[in-house]
Design a protein around this nucleic acid. Sequence first.
DNA 1: CTGTTAGCGCATTCAA
DNA 2: TTGAATGCGCTAACAG
Lengths: 352, 352
Amino acid sequence: MSPRGQAARAVPQPTQPPVRRPTVQDVAREAGVSPSTVSRALHTRGYASPAVRARVRAAAERIGYVTDHNARNLRSRTSTSIGVLISDLRNPFYADLAAGIEQELRSAGYQMVLVNDNGDPAEELQAAETLLAMRVPGVIVTPVTAKCPQVLQDNGVHVVCADRELSRSKSDVVLGDNETGARELTEHLIALGHTRIGLLIDETKWSTGAGRLAGFRAAHVDNDLTVDEDLIAYTSFDADAARLTTRKLLNDHDVTAIISANNVLAQGALAELKDRRLKIPRQISLAAYDDVPWMSLVQPALTTVDQSTVEMGRSCARLLLARIRGELTPKRRQVKVPARLIVRGSTGPAPR
Amino acid sequence: MSPRGQAARAVPQPTQPPVRRPTVQDVAREAGVSPSTVSRALHTRGYASPAVRARVRAAAERIGYVTDHNARNLRSRTSTSIGVLISDLRNPFYADLAAGIEQELRSAGYQMVLVNDNGDPAEELQAAETLLAMRVPGVIVTPVTAKCPQVLQDNGVHVVCADRELSRSKSDVVLGDNETGARELTEHLIALGHTRIGLLIDETKWSTGAGRLAGFRAAHVDNDLTVDEDLIAYTSFDADAARLTTRKLLNDHDVTAIISANNVLAQGALAELKDRRLKIPRQISLAAYDDVPWMSLVQPALTTVDQSTVEMGRSCARLLLARIRGELTPKRRQVKVPARLIVRGSTGPAPR
DNA sequence: CTGTTAGCGCATTCAA
DNA sequence: TTGAATGCGCTAACAG
């Protein structure tokens, strides 16, 4: 194996020759027309008499003809495969996002090539190159690095960034309303009398973390509270780390409520609270950004912000397809998907 | 839009002509060799002197050459795209399965085309046709209908059925050890003194449901208990239905424990138990087949059977690739992934 | 080991 | 409205 670079990419194996599949030639013979007529009858709008069209389709059906996308893509320099690059399929957020994307793509006749980049810049870039090789017309990505969208766009591939944007991106983007969502969540707690609220957060460089933090701050400001910076607990992106960070937060400070910035961190926070046998919400309130199913199953159910993740995915797909079809002005589009506060049992009045 | 049939399939839009990308010709010129030498230097093993190979790769890198998969696939009659057909990406079971598949495929240089068929035979079949059009060499499917694997195989596409098999399938298959898993889970309850155990199950026609039911029965037989058929509560496949079925089960029978046959049904069962304020496991024990993350988060955490779902996905991919590469004898392969009992807090001694 | 030739299956010119 | 000719970009034969 070569060490690196594009030549390292795997290549088709000497697979046993697949069965010979019918071609337009075969259909043409069967229908008694020319190959080009078959092509037009099957796909192009206009340019084929209804009679011929019917005959050709019948013939195609009869002999089991199925268009060869490779040939079609090669010739027409288009493709109906769309690349989707996400960070972690096992995280319900990304799974929902992908589900929304796939649904919309499929109903428009497109296919989804899904790559899990594990949030790793190298894998993300490698994936981008694979998608370039596939000549996909567009990619939806939850970006890790600006370089990935960059490379794709430099090669004429349309890009929609999903969930977050990095610095000054030139691509279309679909974002959740992180600031509003976080503000409402924080205000909900403040309204319950909480003044010492811990924020468990993993990153603030992406627009997601930055927005949620901003909303958290804004809620304080709007209510004449000052944010105690020590209550902003920066942690790593996994549940175990979140648990340890929560432990430290509770040891060092007397917070009456905790907000976790996403669904994964919430797992860690909840685990720690349960471990300490703290009564929720009597002794401490817990709330989470990014509602996922388990949050309704625990007792008490968690107060959360629902990001409409599936809809976010659908939006991404719709936007990308519109772009590909040339239905949009050159101006960069930014779509915002609403965030919705869902109050459940895990938040209550602040203990005195 | 035409009503149905293959001609209805969407076709590439008149997208704006993409940027012109470098071809082997360009690389050849840049490196001062012939196109075929470029091809060999870049991909084929052997048949190119190290010097030339290096020169070609450097040239390719320099001008930003990226292989065109469409052209390559067309010419070589192979493809590195693999179809994956699953029922519900939002269900963590399928998400994990897909994640395992993708991981293994990607590390072997293959791409995953993911289709969510929603457990619908029509969508499944439609997806199969799309994958035929893409000329994928193989497909991994959690089958809904026997027709789907059938159609694919008839067209020379290798198929691996994942998680379950339908009737006498001719395809390779990767299954969980449902019978053993369910037996161990049931025996665990029996050992705790339970004799009236409810089984919440949605289907018994697929090998999954049938296997789990068989394991449930076997455990009873092995322990000289007779299965009360009324305690086998057949339900629909969603959580809400499971909840209603659980309600009925509890109303009509005095079970001391409930086993749910999968992770979705467990949601319904748990919801109903909580709604009734039943103390778990003091008043009733609850156990679930198919461990997913939330089951460790609820209080008490659920006793489950872990299906090694990600590993199951990896196995599927490995098996399929081996088949594609022709490394396997013609004989149909059946891989069994172990099931593992995980005892947590939701199961306890039977109340007297 | 390398270059030349040919053609994968299709959609698109252009003529008729 | 249809048919004939062309070539998308690549790799498999073959010859050298």
